[in-house]
Design a protein around this nucleic acid. Structure first.
Lengths: 339, 339
DNA sequence: TTGAAAGCGCTAACAT
DNA sequence: ATGTTAGCGCTTTCAA
């Protein structure tokens, strides 16, 4: 177990009685090699407990086999405060990377001291994937120049860009409002920021408006106060709504975190969900499984999102358009059965 | 923007009119260099948009500045199914790594095809951190040999080992039962596996037993059926408990996922929490914030856990003993106020 | 304080 | 099919 000199391909070559380059060939699955030679090399490598040094290999090869994943959190926040949605997406991206034989170099970036995106120039990664909260302005300001380049993919940045990958928010809004209508609701409100920090919310809002108009119904948005976490925003928005006696029997929240806070407020006010009011969220976070009641929601296809993100991070030509990731309705219990 | 040849330290040297090694010195903060020279070099580097190639630097230096993080998930499971607790811990570890100027190389390993832990031998990392579910036996069997070595740290492996880092489960159990007793409960049951897959659960159980005995009270464990996810296990365990009319007014669950499932069963059966029965979980997952009612729980100090994990992964001498991470009670609403 | 030179361990182009 | 050779871009002696 002691600081023995690293075993190199030269050691293996000696042991196998071949040249060093043959070792390289044998181990990298080059097909111009005799099965017998390969077997000898593999055996020698095994016996010596040899592993290819990835730095040397990548330095020489000039490619990295690595994708960098940058997760942006709220400034000053602990990593535990990161939206579970982004953790799920991170997990999907790591899985996708791994399925493609890539390494994932992950960094959580919340505060300016941590901002960094030199992975490509420094040879650490072939591509960069940016995910995380849109509300950390300094972080996005720092990374923004990146987004115009190639080998970059981002999920739901605050910017409107080619190459941007997001949920199919318009279809999602239709799904949500249709579900609410199917349950017999007509006075359906949108709860969430309709513009500003999060372009996706704007898309969801416009999708909601379109769906309502298409059904010949009126539409209203409840804007939560800024400067609070999403849960608090949702609670506050519903409390405000309750106070101003606007009639409503359906609520489409811009995201699950808002919806969960809203559910708390509804329950505190004694409004029965789903009997009196139907609620649909957006994201598919785990917390919705055990909320009161469990939250019916829309979620994107995480695997597909991850696939597209990795694909684009690896692509060497600039993306031509935004991509929309398919969404699906997750039935739980905050909307009653269709009547 | 075109495939221009990489800019190297030689280019910078030429531009600054110094030797290549001086560039290296200037940029790596070596103190034997004139401030004037350094300034020239830094300026030239900036002008050329030069970044040190990390592979070359690390190959030469022989160290990596990287810690590998392996997250073990349930076999066959999507990354979205990973326990949020592990995501929180992952986030904390990434933050800690970043605070120490280390890169984090993250891999999610669920199925045998993904098993891999050669990061140290292949020069990719200086240390390895293993976290994740204990129930993936093939994964832990694969990684087990690692755990006896140096430069490895694991959170709550299924094994009893030196170097193992876990919550202070015994103190946690005392905290939980004391809180329940303070609310006036006496018939407090432990719900969860008491042995088997998860040694931490055993420790929590024994801590519970000790606390109950110390208070002169009886103790009982409700073992959930095996072969279900934690949420289902919790629900099933409580349903079974309800069916067999054992009297109880307090429940200490071995983890939040179990508790959340249990809460669902309690609510379905019309048992009021916290009025009729007090409930305490363990982990501090977000879902507990919006459950019905919000779940009072115990959580470890994630930052400290991460600190210890990274510390140990970097340590070059074998660990002498297990470490216990401090825990705290998170008051929410599933236990009534002390009377 | 700086430059020259060696070499980290590997892959790939070129021979044979 | 395999060996020889030349670097990948850097850090670090060693000399000056």
């Amino acid at each position: 177990m002691r600081k023995a000199r690293r075993v190199t391909s030269i050691d293996v070559a000696e042991a196998a009685g071949v040249s060093q380059s043959t070792v390289s060939r044998a181990l990298s699955g080059c097909d111009t090699i005799t099965e017998a030679t390969r077997a000898r090399v593999v055996e020698a490598a095994r016996a010596l407990d040899y592993r290819v040094n990835e730095h040397a290999a990548r330095l020489r090869r000039g490619s990295t086999g690595t994708v960098a994943v940058i997760v942006i959190g709220r400034a000053g926040a602990a990593p535990g405060a990161i939206n579970p949605f982004h953790y799920k997406l991170l997990g999907a991206v790591c899985a996708e990377a791994s399925a493609r034989g890539l390494d994932a170099l992950v960094s959580f970036q919340c505060d300016p001291a941590q901002f960094y995106h030199d992975h490509i120039e420094s040879g650490q990664a072939d591509g960069i994937i940016l995910i995380g909260t849109t509300v950390n302005e300094p972080a996005w300001a720092f990374h923004e120049p990146l987004l115009k380049r190639t080998n970059i993919a981002s999920w739901a940045s605050p910017f409107e860009l080619n190459g941007e990958i997001r949920s199919d928010n318009s279809r999602a809004a239709h799904l949500a409002t249709s579900r609410l209508m199917a349950a017999g609701h007509r006075a359906i409100l949108f709860v969430g920021p309709t513009k500003g920090d999060q372009p996706q919310f704007g898309e969801r809002y416009r999708g909601y408006v379109a769906a309502m108009e298409q059904a010949g119904l009126g539409h209203t948005a409840i804007e939560p106060p800024a400067d609070a976490d999403r849960g608090t925003q949702g609670r506050l928005a519903v409390e405000q709504l309750l106070a101003q006696d606007t009639p409503f029997d359906g609520l489409f929240f811009a995201c699950d975190a808002l919806a969960l806070g809203g559910l708390d407020a509804l329950s505190a006010a004694g409004r029965a969900v789903p009997e009196e009011v139907g609620v649909v969220g957006f994201d598919g976070v785990d917390s919705g499984q055990h909320s009161n009641p469990p939250l019916t929601t829309i979620e994107p296809d995480f695997a597909e999102a991850a696939r597209q993100l990795v694909e684009r991070a690896l692509a060497s030509d600039p993306p031509a358009f935004q991509t929309r990731v398919p969404v699906m309705l997750v039935e739980r219990a905050s909307v009653r059965q269709p009547r």
